[in-house]
Design a protein around this nucleic acid. Sequence first.
DNA 1: CTTGAACCTACAGTAGCTGTAGCTCGTATA
DNA 2: TATACGAGCTACAGCTACTGTAGGTTCAAG
Lengths: 142, 142
Amino acid sequence: MLSIGTLAKRTGTKVQTIRYYEQIALMPTPGRSEGGQRRYGEAELDRLAFIRHSRQLGFSLEAIRELLDLSDSPERSCAKVDAVTQKHLRDVEARIARLDALRIELQRMISECSADRVADCRILEVLRDHEECLADHDRPGA
Amino acid sequence: MLSIGTLAKRTGTKVQTIRYYEQIALMPTPGRSEGGQRRYGEAELDRLAFIRHSRQLGFSLEAIRELLDLSDSPERSCAKVDAVTQKHLRDVEARIARLDALRIELQRMISECSADRVADCRILEVLRDHEECLADHDRPGA
DNA sequence: CTTGAACCTACAGTAGCTGTAGCTCGTATA
DNA sequence: TATACGAGCTACAGCTACTGTAGGTTCAAG
């Protein structure tokens, strides 16, 4: 029987996080000691490890809930598991693409700025007057 | 004089977001009409555009606050502006690197799974038993 | 038996908004 | 001038995924 602290150490989770997972019903309500402290077994350890590893891979708690549900019915098709993972992959790819565009823009801004006074700073200028930013949202004349 | 709704449309911001920025003092408290509705001028339009564009580039509200402060003192050195932007760039790069590692892992998982029953699903297996995940956080015997 | 680390509940806070309820204001049209 | 209705107002709850705190209780080693 494991205490919550031991479970936390074994899985690299904070104690509060485990209680939080219980609260949102991602972890089951565990047994308790005489004095009312939580006691866990191996099944809970495995479940929490699954959750934490999925989190490390960036799955949302809702996605993890779905994956856990799926893994509880071993005879079902794993197409759904595949779909959840594919969706997550597409998500990650989209985020990468977006961040990459940001990276390029930031690098451009930095490389273009060789002023030493704030008044002439290219970075601030770009932040102030990006053509896409002002003036073309729904304005009658634009 | 612009109403909050006009300001919102011009900058592609939601009305609530503008009120939120006012609440956290990122936007100034504006003048009001007779009846108590917010009225804005060009300066506020520019400021909000600056904020929104910076947000599009992924700067945090705290970073934006700093950039706005800096841009209010045009005679100062813009080294600080550069530093804020550099820091943000390094942040973005780190996030990209992390996401890229995730992407590769997810792709590997998906490509390895050719089962059709959940019981044999490689994806779930990987999520369950990642060697780095269990068993090596601070355990005495490990 | 004592001590102190670990546990308990309950709640507030984080970023950056977004949405809702229940009201009031402004303005275009008849 | 009356009225309708979109836009604005405040205040507050909710979102994700935790994290931290206060104030009290339990457990286990010595």
